[in-house]
Structure formats: C-alpha cells, structure tokens
C-alpha cells in the first residue's frame, strides 16, 4: 500500500571499517568471535524464515492435491505434476479439473497475466515520463511560486488512498470507464507525488553548466530535457520505472474497485476470486499456489536482475 523509497545519496564517507591497530588486538578477541557466530546464526535463521514461504509456494505448486494431505511436511513436491499450472492456465476440461481437486471455475491466468502486463506497462510509461517533466519544471526551471506549487503536489502524500478512491471510483463510473484499461490506469498515469519527488532530487544534482552549454548551442528547453537531462538520469529513471512497475503489478485495491470483469482482471484480483471460489472443505491448494507463483514470479525475476539497484535506492535523501 505505501512505499517509502527515497533516492539515497551516496554515503558521504565510505563505510568506516576501521582496521584495528596492530598493537591492541588482544582485548576481547575471543568474545566478539562468539558474538559473531551467534550473530550469523541469527542472521541465517532470519534469511531462512524469509525464503521458506517462497520455497513452499514453489513446492506446493508442483504437487498433486490428493497427495498433499498425506505428505503435508514433505519438503519435495507431493506427487510431482504440472497439473496445477494446467488448471490455472485453463488448459484442463471441467471434469479433469474437478478430478484433480480444482474448483472448476473458469480461470485463465494467461489472460490475467496479459492484463497485469498491459496495466503495469501503461502506468509505468505515463507516470515516469510525465513525472519527469514535472520534476524538471520543479528542479531546473525558475518561476514564481515554484516551491509553493511543489509543496501542494507533495501534500497529496498525506491523504490515505481510500479517501480519494471513493470519489475517483465515482468519476471513473461517470466517465463510463469501469472495467476498461483506461479506468485502471488513469489515476496513476499522469503523476504520483512520490515519482515527482524522487526524480526532482536527482535533477537538482545535475550541474547547470551542462544545460547552459546546450542552450548556448541553441537547443530549446524541450530539446535539452529530452536530449540531455533524460539520458543523464537514465539510472534513477530506471530505478523509478522498476519501482513503479512493481507497485502497479502488486496493486489490489483500485483494480478490485474498477476492474472486475474478465477482460481487464489483473492477477491480484484474480487471485482473490480464485481463493474465494475454492471449495471450503478441500481447497485447491496446489492450484492456488501455482496461481500465486504466476503472480509473483515476474517480480521475483525482476528483483533478481535489478536487485542491487533496488536495494541501493532504499535509504534517506539527506537526513544530516
């Protein structure tokens, strides 16, 4: 629901790992070692607790429902099969699905995957580009009232989502955009206060000389923005795009309000419906875990590829 990532300025001083003076290694050379062992033991437990649910989701997704009960604690898939994925992607007939312990409801996660991709891509493209334009106006252009207007834009951060979600729902309904992609995308297509804030921080740091040189050569502001500022900010823009994409991909509340119909239903909403359809007595756990895997995998892959960039973007933007 709420993300708090702020461009981290690189630490002013390199992380201080002060080498122990050669003269005094004796003091406490044994105790810290025990402390270190204990520390690593705790750390490994934390890492295991963090990773185990991911493994469990994977393991269960490749299991057979009828075997799951007997092998509830088996670390390997219980009766290895791809049936759960076939059910989730709508590749089985109703009879097959029911025989495998499926809910039998009409589900097609290819479609929901496609919808999630369309929605997240559209939001990311619009939000990042338009927020970059605004951030440029707030960071590099000089005009009266600039800081006041920026403060007004930022104040939107304080408003809880549901407060604007109700009127926004009414607006989307009035525009006849319920159950359409524009309805899903529009509220976050033009800006978010966070995106503007994030990029403004970086634009502030670009030396003025570069821009002035381009303008002396006769480039307009628009040209300078497209040809100089944007390429120079490729790194933060990529980071913001990744964060925006993940945020859009994971969003549940807004798509739940305006995107219920099959043609625009995204993965998170589909998961909620799948869960509520699943029979009470013996839920289709393998199918449910296969479905969550489909929803989580793109983000996990993105994270593996771009993890370092994301990790480094978390911090504070200049608390002294």
């Amino acid at each position: 629901m709420s993300t708090t990532i702020v461009p981290a300025t690189p630490p002013a001083t390199p992380p201080a790992e002060v080498p122990r003076p050669a003269g005094a290694p004796e003091k406490g050379s044994r105790r810290p070692r025990w402390g270190t062992v204990l520390g690593w033991a705790t750390m490994i437990v934390i890492l295991l607790i963090t990773l185990f649910p991911f493994y469990w989701m994977l393991r269960t997704a490749f299991s057979t429902n009828s075997e799951l009960a007997a092998q509830a604690a088996n670390l390997a898939p219980a009766g290895f099969t791809l049936d759960a994925f076939r059910r989730v992607f709508g590749l089985t007939t109703l009879e097959e699905s029911l025989a495998q312990g499926g809910a039998g409801g009409r589900i097609n996660f290819w479609l929901y995957l496609r919808n999630s991709v369309i929605m997240s891509t559209a939001i990311t493209l619009g939000q990042v580009f338009f927020s970059a334009m605004a951030a440029y106006a707030f960071a590099r252009l000089r005009w009266p009232g600039r800081n006041a207007v920026f403060a007004v834009f930022l104040s939107a951060l304080m408003v809880p989502g549901i407060f604007t979600a109700i009127p926004n729902f009414v607006l989307i309904k009035e525009l006849g955009l319920l159950n359409t992609f524009p309805g899903l995308v529009l509220p976050t297509f033009f800006m978010t206060p966070f995106a503007i804030f994030f990029l403004r921080q970086f634009f502030l740091g670009i030396p003025h000389e570069i821009e002035e040189a381009a303008m002396i050569d006769g480039a307009s502001r628009g040209r300078t923005f497209l040809r100089i500022i944007l390429p120079m900010s490729a790194a933060p823009i990529t980071t913001l795009a990744v964060l925006t994409y993940i945020q859009a991909w994971n969003e549940y509340f807004w798509p739940l309000l305006v995107g219920q119909s099959d043609g625009v239903r995204v993965l998170t909403v589909a998961l909620g419906i799948f869960r509520s359809q699943t029979p009470q007595g013996s839920p289709d756990w393998a199918g449910l875990m296969a479905a969550t895997l489909v929803a989580a995998l793109p983000i996990v892959l993105l994270f593996v590829v771009l993890g370092r960039r994301i990790v480094n973007s978390i911090g504070f933007s200049g608390i002294k």
């Binding site: 890492l47 991911f54 799951l68 983000i299």
Partner: peptide, 28 residues
C-alpha cells in the same frame, strides 16, 4: 536483497501463501 524480497511481492500473494502455510489441516 533477500531481506527485502518479501516487501516487493504483492500483499495478496503473501497473504495466500501464509494462508496455506497456516491452514488448520494441511498447513506446514
């Protein structure tokens, strides 16, 4: 990165995985 990973997975996904892991009969 590992420590951060859960934060980037959708609430809905996290909820359902734990919902299964904490199930009365089948949960690990």
């Amino acid at each position: 990165g590992v420590v951060l990973l859960p934060y980037f997975v959708a609430n809905v996904v996290v909820a359902l995985v734990w919902f299964f892991m904490l199930d009365f009969q089948m949960g690990i």
